[in-house]
Amino acid sequence: MGIFELKGVTKRFKDNLVLENLNLDIPQGSIFGILGINGSGKTTILRLLVGYYKPTKGEVLYLNKKLKKVEGKLRSEIGFTTQDSAFYPKLTVEENIKYFGALYGLPKKTIESNSDRILKLVELDHVRNRIAEQLSGGMQRRLDMACSLIHVPKVVILDEPTEDLDPLLRKDILHLIKKIAEIGTTVIITSHRLEDIEIVCDRVAILHNKSMIRSGTLDELKEEYSSSEEIHLQTKNQDYRTIVKNISQYDTYYVDGSRLVIRAKNAERILHEILHIIENTKDKLIYVDVQRPTLEEVFQSLTKDVGAQKDFLRKQ
């Protein structure tokens, strides 16, 4: 039984159709990633999950029950971290956390003990008395998460948690997400950063053209939608035209800087052919590598809309 289930959900804002006939099952205890380009409706899905938006059509189930019937229970069992750091900048770290603890209806003692634990978890216990606006970007993101975790929720929803963060801070946050999942919390995460999703998520759903086009574990998706492998090579003469001309049964190729990238289902046989060609043309192999497809490739395979792909890739 999934913790959340969306059945034929359509969401329309006046004339703007954002989601259409969406079906999604989010399993309990996993880190579930929702992938999609900017404006694809990821945040709308999250807000539908917590009852902030009502579906125009279809229904949202929480623990197999209609959301309307379990709205109170749901609100006390979820934590939500938005794209923008959502806390009061003029309050201290501890005041913010305790404030949300009170809003979740926790007793004072529980708030005290939970805030200590959460502050340690997010590594903010040393700045607990600092005014929130004085924190660094990464700390602010962690504080936002801490505010969502004070009531030890069953589900934590993270909307673009690594957005606008430098690589080091991103790494910190992803590490924190894993830590949150380790304590048994279901994590639902949205991002357009495929590499982030790939690092932390057990399962993903890909959102495109207003609907969910595929969901599953990362391995399943890679297996299913990207059976090709990539051969990355570089020769001394870089006469890649001759190589491409003489090999057979490849899917596609492109030149990435000084390297040739060939995508093919039977990489081993193609590699053998390439080596033979290089030998015949008296060229010299400088670099060669065979890589498994990335989530990005899966995404590319699934989203046929070239314009959208380009936009997506440009934003990377």
Binding site: Y52, R75, T82, A86, F87, C147
Partner: peptide, 10 residues
């Protein structure tokens, strides 16, 4: 920014 977060609390 906090409005939504306040909204989803009980």
């Amino acid at each position: 920014r906090v409005y939504f977060k306040n909204f989803i609390t009980p």
